[in-house]
Design a protein around this nucleic acid. Sequence first.
RNA 1: GGGCUUGUAGCUUAGUCGGUAGAGCGACAGACUCUUAAUCUGUAGGUCAGGGGUUCGAGUCCCUUCAGGCCCGCCA
Length: 517
Amino acid sequence: MIGRSTSIMSYDNPALQFDEQRLAKRNLLQEQGVTLYPPSFHRSHTIAGIRTEFDSVTHDPSPQQVATAGRIYIVRDHGKTFFCDLGDESGRIQLYIRKDSLPDGKFAIFKSGVERGDIIGVKGRAFRTKVGEITLWVDDFELLTKALCSLPEKFHGLTNLEKRYRQRYLDLIVNEESRETFRTRSRILSQLRNNLTARDFLEFETPTLQPIYGGANARPFTTYHNYLEQKLYMRIAPELYLKRLVVGGFEKVFELAKNFRNEDIDTSHNPEFSMVEIYQAYADYKDMMRLTEEIISGIIREVTGGYEVTYEGNTIDFTPPWNSMPMEEAVKTIGGIDIFTYPLEALKEKGKTLGVEGVEGVRSHREALPLFFETLVEEKLIQPTFILDFPIENSPLAKVHREKEGFVERFELFIAGMELANGFSELNDPIDQLERFEAQEEKRRLGDEEAQMHDYDFVNALGYGMPPTGGVGIGIDRLVMLSTSNTSIKEVILFPSMRRESTTEEEEEVAPGEDNQ
RNA sequence: GGGCUUGUAGCUUAGUCGGUAGAGCGACAGACUCUUAAUCUGUAGGUCAGGGGUUCGAGUCCCUUCAGGCCCGCCA
């Protein structure tokens, strides 16, 4: 929308966090002819670079002048001298600013107009102070960016979670741990790409806006394309498109996908989240388990330097190979109940006493199995554990088990009680796929909003022939949580979904979507 | 959806039994040429998240709205 032009700029709009004193300094600097936002500054060194190169300097400043830049984090005013802590992405260094070392008039500008939070460029020479702190003796400085908002307190910093999430930039400015978390996240992403491309996988991008959503059981976000005049869904998974690529002849593919699910938010769920999905022709679910194990353990070693991670007080050991067991065995040995020894009615009773949700409605032991698993086992799986062989009913895209009737060749990986990965031998029999979709459609008719949509084009793709294929999806956000010992997904997503703040004027109420047909 | 819980100055926070809202940092004015959470002196800064109620009197007690956090449900 075209902005309503306001003839008088208003800095006291409650939505603005500008500081009056800083605005005054800005004006003062402008009157003195200081350029507030110059276009560039040439650095000869980063701060870490200075620290490394001049590590052996003594009390006498090095003859070599360097140019570096950064944000002023702390100012210590001594009258005719200043000590400042200057920080860039690489680190921090102390500046020593003397009135008699700067060009004429510069000291007054610094004293009256430059403050904590501002970004400056400096030219200076490295030396060590009396107490041995490596410091830059400043010969000249240039204001590079005047900050109008003041930084949080220098010692306690910013701890308010809501503010840290809503104003992540501020969190990143002042909290090194937060910067480190997102550095790790970035390293994990590049490690994933390197690892997979080194194995000859090709990375692709498939549609985020989909006319038919699929690949998972979840409620989608709905949108509308004006030109096409049709409803579109934000993808809940890229699965069905990636498998089309395997049909097309790409034998090893992956996508680093942002998925969208219109569901609740909690410490392990964000409405938009990241997942890597991987498909490999001529592989089965066991191959994908091995691949998953190699990729994740490799990432943990790369980002932590070892295979052990402390998480929620537990030491998690990622050293391969990881434990694996069929779901019925997990329920038996970890859950402590061998459900197949109970008659069905007795099993339902037993389930009720154990607090197994939804057990009353089951029609078979097989249907009861995942319910018992979720209640009795899932949260106890702290060490990396593959759970194998799921009942067929809830896995409409997985191939039937080669030995166990009524089951599919599927695994899920659990770590710290969280589901980290989910993979299977992909269903490639078009007739079976058609029947599974029809079963899902029936569920939808009975009101299951999360049952999958029928996708005839996908069935046709399988009709042209997809080789035997293994696939897996790995949750990136949760992997970052484990790698950085964070127990909230909001700590590892830069800009997590938050309810909008109501301090600003009410916007037009958005309709709750047309996702109920 | 349910339970518990938090919201006080820019930030970090104290506030007892209901009795004039305190501090540190930051800001402002001043002193100080090796400090490092610099130090010292002084000043300003508050719709106690919003609204309502009880009371002579509410940051404090009650109701309600908003936003956040934790747990449960849901998300297989």
